[in-house]
Amino acid sequence: MNYQVGQRGLIQWVELLPHQALITSENDALDWVGVCGELRALRLLVHESNLPEAFFDLRSGLAGGVLLKFSNYRMRVAAVVSAERASQGRFGEMVQETNRGSQFRVFQDATAAREWLAK
Rank of each mutant, 00 (worst) to 15 (best):
N2D: 13
Y3D: 02
R8A: 12
R8D: 10
G9F: 03
G9A: 04
L10H: 11
Q12V: 01
Q12R: 15
W13M: 03
V14Y: 02
E15M: 07
L17P: 11
L17S: 06
Q20K: 15
A21R: 12
I23F: 02
I23Q: 00
T24S: 12
D28T: 10
D31H: 13
G34Q: 11
G34N: 14
C36V: 02
C36T: 07
L39Q: 14
A41H: 05
A41C: 09
L42A: 06
R43P: 00
V46W: 00
S49G: 07
P52M: 15
P52K: 14
D57V: 14
R59N: 13
L62G: 03
A63E: 02
G64M: 15
L67Y: 06
L67E: 11
L67I: 14
K69Q: 14
S71R: 15
N72Q: 15
R76L: 09
A79Y: 01
S82D: 01
A83I: 01
E84C: 05
R85Q: 11
R85A: 00
S87M: 07
S87I: 00
Q88G: 03
G89E: 03
G92P: 08
E93K: 10
E93W: 10
M94I: 11
R100T: 09
R100V: 05
R100G: 07
G101P: 03
G101I: 05
G101N: 11
G101S: 06
S102C: 04
S102E: 13
Q103H: 08
R105H: 04
V106M: 02
F107D: 00
Q108V: 07
D109R: 10
A110T: 10
A110W: 01
R114T: 11
R114P: 05
E115R: 13
E115Y: 12
W116Y: 11
